[in-house]
Design a protein around this nucleic acid. Structure first.
Lengths: 215, 215
DNA sequence: ATCGTAACTGAACAACTGTTAAGGAGCTCG
DNA sequence: CGAGCTCCTTAACAGTTGTTCAGTTACGAT
């Protein structure tokens, strides 16, 4: 007969392989990865603590060793996500230099790549804001507005610079963010185009939306 | 002491006023309207049958007089929505005539207006596809692809016609749909712009995405 | 060897879930 | 009148929910 410890170790290993490809501290990170997988498929309310635990290969109670509540798991995922996006966007903006065209290409590249690489996490992030309780909801929305303002500034700057000719820079900025965010909901890794190619195309589409004249 | 009938009538009247502004058959339509309101706020799984019934001013069991299940309520809402969108899009396309520019303006106008007028319903429609069970999910996705194909055809047609110059007509078509669908998630009736004005602007943005040259 | 602690377990909790059963009020029609 | 129908009720059902609790195991430090 197999000992409880052997059973348990086996279960954990299996859990790790599914979610985490065999390494890592297997605690918080495994649970977060499992949560992202299963929540992005069925939504926050459509996912039970037992679903998460089963996917992670642990018991339901194990989740409460690492997080105070199911809600806190969501908060952690959403906050890590938006924070990384903000950081990467800021970096891209610094690296782009002073020209609005370069800036727009830079932040669109980051935005698209981020939503392609962390497809499930970002889908959670965009669809489950409503599941956040206050004050986390308010804080998260503030960070989203901050991210939006990056795009607003680039569009308005380019308009003043005279390189963007759209009559509605704010609407164009919002449209660009929405369209780049949207890639997470249709992208399939087995599709015909590489992530790099998709990012390149969206830079072009964003420039069109900004009203860059050809010539 | 108030009779049960009086209590009940009062409750129903209150329910109607909240949801339906006092008229209508108060049965199926009231329940659907209540479902759209509360489900668009908390999502399908975040909404209980008791939540819906309470908003509609009836008992939880009343829902099962009109629908076989909670899931069927969602199916009804989503199907009515996509069917009306398809119909309106088809009409707009016929009314637009042969030129791709007019066609694009027509279907963008319909798409934006539809998502502004039925804001809550369309938000449900875009976010809760995952809550649909088979075979309804498959059927609904087929209708969504049909709607997408309207835009694909217009973009490809305009490219062949030589009036649209985007290098990526299919990506542009998807981006246009996504950006028009997105209005439902940020629009507030008390905002600075009328629905007509927003629709007009999005026609402009769509033409930019399509790569219509100025001049 | 023993202590401490991090990581986890199975079993239980009350609350809530979708759904059903049985019945009553109000209406129309013969 | 009363049969039949629509629309709705209260009360209950079994299953699931998030969460807690008391205990167990693995393991590095003393």
């Amino acid at each position: 007969m197999m000992s409880a410890a052997e059973q348990e170790a086996g279960r954990r290993r299996r859990g790790r392989r599914t979610v985490n490809s065999e390494l890592g501290p297997a605690g918080v990170d495994t649970l977060l990865a499992a949560s992202i997988e299963v929540m992005s498929e069925h939504g926050y309310h459509g996912t039970s603590v037992r679903d998460i635990a089963h996917r992670a290969g642990v018991s339901p109670a194990a989740l409460y060793h690492h997080f105070p509540s199911k809600h806190d798991v969501l908060v952690t995922i959403m906050d890590r996500g938006i924070e990384e996006l903000l950081e990467r966007t800021g970096e891209a903006l610094s690296a782009a230099g002073p020209r609005a065209i370069d800036q727009l290409c830079g932040i669109v590249d980051v935005h698209v790549r981020f939503h392609l690489e962390d497809q499930h996490g970002t889908m959670l992030g965009t669809s489950e804001v409503r599941a956040l309780a206050e004050p986390f909801r308010g804080e998260h929305l503030a960070k989203r507005r901050k991210q939006q303002r990056f795009f607003d500034r680039v569009l308005l700057g380019g308009t003043r610079e005279g390189v963007f000719h759209t009559a509605y820079p704010r609407d164009a900025a919002r449209a660009i963010v929405v369209m780049c965010t949207g890639v997470a909901s249709w992208y399939r890794p087995e599709g015909p185009h590489s992530r790099t190619e998709i990012a390149r195309r969206y830079q072009e589409l964003a420039l069109d939306l900004a009203g860059r004249r050809i010539g």
